[in-house]
């Protein structure tokens, strides 16, 4: 066998192995394209079950952020107030990550540029430890700046469930409050209501 023939044979083998592996994994930049896993729209309305889902999380965060931005304590503030997120209690019968709700609101508010946020109390020890590493002497004034918030945000998530043989009705109520920690005064409160109905018949969509 000549060198040229050997070369062309090995090239064909390499090329065909590449092509075969390409068929198994999909196109360029894709792995496992023939599997059942597909990427969907992260903001799509999800109605797989009546449980608190991603659409509820997104719409709750949007509604309450809009309402918060309209309050005069934020929209008319001389400079963006410092806010700290506190616990939002889950008073429902199911597991709901309430921090996901407040984190999403925090992201939206920070993007608006109208509010500044202080680290959560749960993370305060870590922030404090980092400061101790970087500063030789922590003055009381600096600590005050880190701990003093203008407002705190707290809230509750509640649900009412009712069901008969044909219909299951779930009502969610997410309420948030903006509180002045010095006076304890509730300056703003709003709620987001969600109703979900699961029907065993073919009515609906």
């Amino acid at each position: 066998m000549t060198t040229l023939t050997k070369l062309s044979l090995s090239t064909t083998l390499i090329l065909s192995s590449f092509l075969m592996s390409g068929c198994a994994t999909g196109g360029a930049g894709m792995v496992g394209a023939s599997s059942n896993v597909k990427y969907g729209d992260a903001k799509a309305a999800e109605t797989v079950t009546a449980d608190f889902g991603s659409s509820d999380l997104q719409s709750t965060a949007e509604t309450l952020t809009q309402s918060l931005l309209e309050t005069r304590y934020i929209s008319k503030a001389q400079q963006p107030p410092k806010v700290r997120l506190r616990t939002v209690n889950n008073l429902t019968y199911e597991h709901i990550d309430t921090k996901a709700i407040t984190d999403k609101i925090r992201i939206k508010l920070l993007k608006s540029g109208q509010v500044r946020f202080l680290a959560d109390t749960a993370n305060l020890n870590q922030v404090s430890a980092e400061r101790d590493l970087t500063t030789t002497a922590t003055t009381k004034t600096k600590m005050k700046a880190m701990t003093d918030s203008d407002y705190i945000i707290t809230g509750n998530v509640r649900s009412i469930k009712k069901a008969n043989d044909d219909v299951k009705d779930v009502y969610y109520n997410v309420s948030l409050e903006l509180v002045d920690p010095q006076s304890g005064e509730i300056l703003w409160a709003d709620e987001k209501e969600i109703r979900k109905v699961t029907s065993k018949s073919s009515v609906g969509w």
Partner: peptide, 9 residues
């Protein structure tokens, strides 16, 4: 930016 898809009946 965009809002989430909001469903209605």
């Amino acid at each position: 930016d965009q809002t989430a898809w909001k469903p209605f009946t």
